[in-house]
């Protein structure tokens, strides 16, 4: 993945999480690369990217984390991962990706977003052949959120 794309995503993830989780202790783990198939922790929000590039950003977390994050964002304790909780996680994905894309736009890269979608379930796996993904692990008091960015230049 192009070096210039990395920082905008890392910064956006950090800023947005810090903001929505109300100044809690958000930390970034070590970045690394992963190839092809990615097991999903239980809840995955996905945003597609198009424009100069093609790719997608996947926000991966387990159910407990998703529920805890959604609870904080809504300011009330949610009991189940219902429509409201799912919509909240989707919105989180949208916020982070949009902020990253805005930063990239300032650097001169043109990206478009697709509306986010959310997947929940057990033993899910995402496979996209021929793309390696950058993993940005974010540690929050609510649990771990893995941001999985796979972007390829349009040949």
């Amino acid at each position: 993945m192009r070096v210039e794309y990395i920082n905008p995503f890392v910064e956006a993830a950090f800023n947005v999480l810090k903001e929505v989780l109300v100044n809690s202790d958000v930390r970034r783990g070590e970045l690394y690369l992963k190839s092809a198939s990615t097991p999903v922790l239980g809840v995955a929000a996905i945003v597609g990217l198009a424009g100069d590039v093609e790719g997608r950003v996947l926000f991966d977390m387990n159910r407990d984390t998703a529920l805890a994050v959604a609870s904080v964002m809504n300011g009330e304790q949610l009991a189940t991962l219902d429509d409201l909780a799912k919509a909240t996680i989707t919105e989180l994905a949208n916020m982070i990706t949009a902020q990253a894309v805005t930063k990239l736009h300032d650097l001169g890269f043109q990206f478009d977003l697709t509306p986010p979608a959310i997947f929940t379930g057990d033993n899910m796996e995402v496979s996209d052949q021929d793309v390696e993904a950058l993993i940005v692990p974010m540690e929050t008091p609510q649990g771990k959120i893995e941001i999985n960015v796979a972007i390829r230049e349009r040949a």
Binding site: L33, S35, A36, Q129, E132
Partner: peptide, 15 residues
């Protein structure tokens, strides 16, 4: 020049 953070052991997508 395009610099990429990339591992050659993964798929190499350039033309």
């Amino acid at each position: 020049v395009m610099f990429e953070y990339h591992d050659v052991l993964n798929a190499n997508p350039m033309p």
